[in-house]
Simulated scan of single mutants.
Amino acid sequence: MMGIQFRKRQKYGPLVLNFTENGYSSWSIKIGRWSWNSKSRAHRVDLPGPLSWKQDKTRT
């Protein structure tokens, strides 16, 4: 069933804490246009306009 999802982000400098309705979800680091997320372990770079580049870390 689709419904409204609760999301909240708290920023502490380059550190971002992500929360959902179940509580703590993940943390991220954002420095300039580059960011990394602890849950997806993905690197992301913001590009001009609405574009971004993402590289997922492969899990072995």
Rank of each mutant, 00 (worst) to 15 (best):
S25T: 04
T60K: 09
T60Q: 11
I4N: 09
Y24H: 05
V16M: 13
D46P: 00
L15S: 11
W34N: 04
V45S: 02
S35Q: 08
W27D: 04
I4S: 10
F19V: 02
I4R: 14
L15V: 12
G3H: 03
G13K: 15
Y24I: 07
D56I: 03
I4E: 14
R9T: 15
R44M: 05
P48Q: 13
L15E: 07
S52E: 09
S38P: 04
V45Q: 03
L17R: 01
P14K: 12
S25W: 01
N22A: 08
S40Y: 06
G13P: 00
I29T: 09
R44S: 03
R33V: 03
S26L: 06
R44Q: 05
I29R: 09
L17N: 01
E21D: 13
R9H: 15
S40L: 07
N37E: 10
N37M: 09
G49F: 04
V45L: 04
Q55Y: 07
P48M: 11
K11E: 15
N22S: 11
G13R: 08
T60C: 11
F6H: 12
S28N: 10
M2D: 11
S26A: 12
W27Y: 10
Y12W: 12
N37G: 06
S35K: 04
I29F: 09
G13Q: 07
G32R: 08
T58V: 13
G3S: 10
V16D: 02
I31F: 10
H43P: 00
V45Y: 01
I29Q: 05
S25P: 02
E21I: 06
T20K: 11
R7D: 13
R44L: 01
K57W: 15
G3V: 01
M1I: 03
P14V: 05
H43K: 07
L15W: 11
Q5K: 15
G23L: 03
G49L: 11
S35L: 05
